[in-house]
Computed example of a mutant assay.
Amino acid sequence: MKQATLTLAVLLAATACGGGGDNSDNGDSGGSGNDGADGGAGMPRPREFGIHDTRVQVRPHEQFVLKVPYRPSEGYRWIVRGDKPDPRTATLIDTRAQGFDPDRMGDRGERWYSYRAEKPGRTKLALRECFQCGTSNERVDADHPVKDVTFHITVAN
Score class of each variant (00 low, 15 high):
S73E: 12
C130K: 01
R122N: 13
P60Q: 02
E62C: 09
F100E: 01
Y115D: 02
G33D: 01
F49D: 01
D101G: 04
V140Q: 15
I153T: 03
H152D: 14
G36D: 08
D107L: 07
S32G: 15
F151C: 02
W112S: 06
W78D: 03
E74K: 09
K67Y: 02
V149E: 05
R77F: 11
R108N: 04
V146Y: 01
D141H: 05
G134S: 03
G20N: 06
A90E: 07
A13F: 14
R88L: 12
R122Y: 08
P60G: 06
G21N: 03
G31M: 05
Y115M: 07
D143T: 10
F49W: 08
K147G: 00
V149G: 08
A117C: 10
I51P: 11
R45A: 15
Q57Y: 03
A13T: 10
L125I: 03
H152L: 11
A90Y: 04
K119A: 13
D22F: 05
L125T: 07
M43S: 12
W112R: 14
P85A: 08
T123C: 05
V58E: 02
T123Q: 09
V140P: 00
G40T: 08
P69T: 06
G106H: 01
D141T: 06
K119G: 00
R77C: 01
A41E: 12
D83G: 12
D86K: 06
K147L: 14
T89R: 02
V68F: 04
S29D: 09
E62D: 15
S73H: 03
N23E: 14
R111T: 04
D83S: 15
G21R: 05
S32R: 11
Y76T: 01
F151T: 02
Q63H: 13
H152V: 08
A142D: 14
D103S: 13
D28P: 00
D143S: 13
R139V: 07
G20R: 14
M105I: 09
T15C: 13
P102Y: 11
C130G: 15
G42N: 02
G134D: 08
P120V: 09
C130W: 03
E138M: 08
P85V: 03
R111Y: 07
G33P: 01
R47M: 10
R116S: 11
D101T: 01
L92R: 13
R128Q: 15
E48F: 09
T123M: 04
Q57M: 11
K147Q: 15
L12M: 13
R116K: 14
G36S: 05
Q132S: 10
H61N: 14
G121S: 08
T95P: 00
G42F: 04
C133G: 12
W78H: 04
V65N: 04
W112Y: 15
I79Q: 12
I51W: 00
P72R: 07
L92H: 02
I51H: 01
